[in-house]
Design a protein around this nucleic acid. Structure first.
Lengths: 194, 194
DNA sequence: GTTGTTATATAACAAATGTTACGAGTCAAG
DNA sequence: CTTGACTCGTAACATTTGTTATATAACAAC
């Protein structure tokens, strides 16, 4: 009956477009018209797949969280020891390359918006809860107080990531700062005898 | 000649109004009309003191940074030892009461906006630089590598503060979380032998 | 009291936004 | 070939926004 289009695939196209607009121009710039233009069509198509601007933004954040979660899972797979598994996931979570840096910057925009948006706040809380759970699982075999340990470690990761996300450095200076953050993480792990 | 009004005082009234609107309804809601209404007047008066919306927001962030800086300075004063001075400043920097929690939430909004706003980004960078400088000064007499030490410590503070700012807890649960963060800071200081 | 500067309100303007409705086009099922 | 569901572009709508201009009111200097 219909035109042969995979709705799921089409939705993801719009989500990608939305993500790119937000990364390049900020959350406020992600209007329906702007996102539709980025996807190469008009609002008519966009509103056919997302009832609301709200729905589009929520789906965009959710998709990003899902992708990040998959990356974490993948990072945990090829590691021989418990410690190496934890370290691999932590390093994967930091914005140490361009893609993840962009991701952190977009997250930062969403965190600000989530202050006054229940849907975004819920999606944020869900991701946060899963991340905390994963961290506790990874720390459990390494420490006898995984709760406090993961609390501190999660805060450290957030702080290091936030620093890089807010940084205005580019090129070599940025790369140096990213290296310093990775080194800081290792220093933390060493001195905390994890 | 003029109507007897202290321009500086009037500006601060608008800055306070802007701050309150942002804290309550988010950065996007801080339109000229909304801020003017919060201050009990119309845009005519507001634009008389701030040429732009940009100027208003930048001034709002700058004022908040100034106030926070003063608080830090004050917290450092009544401390007997170097360690106590550091600890007092760190505790003052965390969102451990309603006022500072509000402050962190607003900052989070501004950080997101600063991703695509050079003026806000500059003001953010200035504050960040001063905060790092203060931390290094406070750590210097306590540790032989104040640079790396302050880097880790600053990240930890950012992470703990961010966690509280993003938290949706209220009432007793929030108070518990705030206590846990203060305790986590102390645990960090102890185990890092600072 | 006259004058000139300042403070503020009102209003207008174009631009942009979210949302909704409508219509044309597309393609598979019958 | 016809029918009908799905896709999507066009367009209209009321709101809201930043910005600017203008007019009125207040008040100090003289």
């Amino acid at each position: 009956m219909p035109k042969s289009v995979d709705p799921l695939e089409r939705q993801e196209e719009f989500i990608t477009a939305s993500w790119n607009v937000i990364a390049r121009e900020g959350l406020a710039a992600a209007s329906l018209r702007r996102v539709a233009a980025e996807a190469g069509c008009t609002t008519g198509s966009l509103t056919h797949y997302f009832s609301d601007r709200q729905a589009l933004l929520t789906a965009t954040l959710r998709q990003a969280h899902f992708a990040a979660g998959m990356r974490m899972q993948h990072a945990a797979q090829d590691a021989s020891t418990d410690f190496e598994r934890l370290r691999a996931v932590l390093l994967e979570s930091l914005p140490l390359d361009a893609t993840r840096l962009r991701e952190w910057k977009v997250w930062l925009c969403f965190w600000g918006a989530a202050m006054n948006d229940d849907e975004l706040s819920n999606e944020d809380a869900r991701r946060y809860s899963e991340w905390r759970k994963l961290l506790r699982t990874l720390i459990a075999p390494l420490h006898d107080d995984p709760k406090e340990e993961s609390h501190l470690l999660m805060s450290m990761i957030d702080g290091l990531g936030l620093q890089l996300a807010r940084s205005r450095q580019t090129g070599a200076a940025l790369a140096r700062q990213q290296k310093a953050c990775a080194a800081a993480l290792d220093a933390y792990l060493t001195r905390f005898q994890i």
